[in-house]
């Protein structure tokens, strides 16, 4: 039985990754899961300098999921390289570093810096965080801006580049095509869906940022639909995510057209979810005598 998948020449032992921002750099979850069993660890977004993030409250639960407005708090690339990347050297899993920035130059600085780091297998460019005022989603909601930043990043990147797309757009297919046309090696989707919650007892917004990104099982049908549309619009591989809780959910994304999948908010519900998804994919394959996970990709036309 083969669970190995390949994206831009990088071979993953299985298609299960972690959703950026939900798993730190793996350190906090290494008490619960064997990181060696995962296809890849996708790290929390890192910028050229430390970012303080948004005021609290930053998280709140909603029906079937949650809203977050962390605001990409991160310790900056220097600490990330010395501490987080160093930690990941102990493990036999692929490392995908999520990169964020306020300006194109910010992104380029981080991408260039990571070019020398052999532990970094791929880069995921966050052009879709809905919770920061500058940068991020500003590049991900306009196809010309997305094309421009992707082109510029590709010029300096030493590792293959994944553009992480936002669902908060009119046509995900158009955005996927823009990323592909600019030379992206892969795309990942969906980032969170912008939402809002009001505490009617306090007559205040539940989040200090007023709006937050929604994630969790409630967004899965939206994510599956978008992965389907995006994967049919481009030839580059798609990494699918949005509410994945178990192996069956992962298979659904793969059938929609995803080459790999990521587990996000469900890590908070069950810190063992990533490993359970790996096992769940294998038991599905056994049950239906699937020899190679790649046979299932986009099987639903």
């Amino acid at each position: 039985m083969n669970t190995q998948v390949e994206i831009a020449g990088v071979k993953f032992k299985n298609p299960v990754m972690t959703g950026s921002g939900t798993f730190g750099s793996g350190m906090e979850y290494s008490d619960f899961v064997d990181l060696n069993k995962l296809g890849a660890v996708v790290t929390k977004g890192v910028a050229n300098v430390p970012w303080p993030g948004n005021p609290v409250p930053r998280v709140t639960e909603v029906y079937g999921g949650m809203l977050n407005a962390i605001g990409l708090q991160n310790p900056g690339i220097d600490v990330f390289v010395e501490r987080d990347l160093e930690f990941l050297k102990k493990y036999d899993t692929k490392v995908i570093v999520n990169v964020c920035g306020k300006s194109v130059e910010d992104y380029l600085e981080v991408v260039e810096r990571l070019g020398n780091e052999s532990r970094v297998d791929m880069l995921e460019i966050n052009v879709s965080c809905p919770n920061v005022k500058e940068g991020a989603i500003a590049f991900g909601q306009n196809k010309d801006a997305l094309f421009d930043i992707t082109t510029r990043i590709k010029k300096v990147a030493k590792q293959p580049v994944i553009m992480k797309l936002s669902p908060n757009v009119t046509s995900i297919a158009e955005m996927a095509k823009a990323a592909e046309a600019a030379g992206a090696d892969a795309i990942s989707l969906i980032n969170t869906i912008t939402g809002m919650k009001i505490d009617i007892h306090k007559r205040k917004f539940a989040l200090a940022n007023k709006t937050g990104g929604m994630s969790g099982p409630a967004i899965k049908p939206v994510a599956v639909r978008m992965v389907y549309e995006a994967s049919h619009a481009v030839k580059i591989p798609v990494i699918g995510m949005g509410g994945i809780a178990n192996g069956d959910d992962a298979i659904e994304f793969i059938m929609a057209g995803a080459t790999a999948v990521a587990v996000g908010a469900m890590n908070f519900h069950d810190p063992y979810t990533t490993e359970k998804v790996v096992e769940g994919i294998e038991s599905y394959m056994k049950r239906y005598n699937v020899e190679d996970i790649n046979e299932l990709r986009g099987i639903v036309e």
Binding site: G24, E28, P50, G53, V59, P75, G76, N267, F268, P271
Partner: peptide, 22 residues
């Protein structure tokens, strides 16, 4: 998350924090 990964539950500190560097 409750385990230090998501950075949801933070409090402002007087000095730069040893983990977050902010």
């Amino acid at each position: 998350c409750g385990v230090g990964a998501c950075l949801g539950c933070v409090c402002k500190t007087k000095e730069v924090d040893h983990h977050s560097y902010v």
